[in-house]
């Protein structure tokens, strides 16, 4: 038995949407280095649609896989839909995570919400 599902290992080995969006419309960063996980999400938003998303993650295999999967699940989606993304949905899409790694999927959910919040705050300030 491997530690992680094939899906987790695939997203860990070949993470999707890795990197930075230079002129992002929303940026969210959650976690802290003390606990060993930091996720940073960059969103490009057009007409309330997430047209592009990138991530950077400092963390374990499941943290990297959760970020990767979460970006895939919101790319091209309306903001309202992205706001509904739950950590359970991320974990399920990865064919499950070990019990002590569930917090990685929670971080992915929080990172996306934080990036959307940042976008909304910026819009409000305009």
């Amino acid at each position: 038995m491997a530690l992680y599902s094939e899906k987790v290992m695939d997203h860990f080995r070949n993470p999707r949407n890795v990197g930075v969006i230079e002129n992002a419309d929303g940026i969210g960063e959650v976690g802290n280095a003390k606990c060993g996980d930091i996720m940073k999400m960059y969103l490009k938003i057009d007409n309330d649609i997430i047209t592009d998303v990138k991530f950077e993650t400092f963390g374990c295999g499941s943290a990297i896989a959760s970020s990767s999967m979460a970006t895939e699940m919101i790319k091209g989606k309306p903001l309202s839909e992205a706001m509904q993304l739950t950590n359970q949905a991320v974990a399920e899409a990865l064919d499950g995570l070990p019990a002590h790694k569930i917090h990685c999927s929670v971080l992915a959910e929080e990172a996306i919400k934080s990036a959307i919040d940042d976008y909304n705050a910026r819009k409000k300030a305009e």
Binding site: F12, F58, C60, G61
Partner: peptide, 24 residues
């Protein structure tokens, strides 16, 4: 700037078995 578990998993992919003191 990096976390130990992901380091171990990628080293495992390269055929190296090692360990880490990371929380993960």
């Amino acid at each position: 700037g990096i976390e130990g578990e992901s380091l171990l998993l990628l080293l495992d992919d390269k055929g190296i078995s090692a360990s880490s003191g990371s929380a993960c």
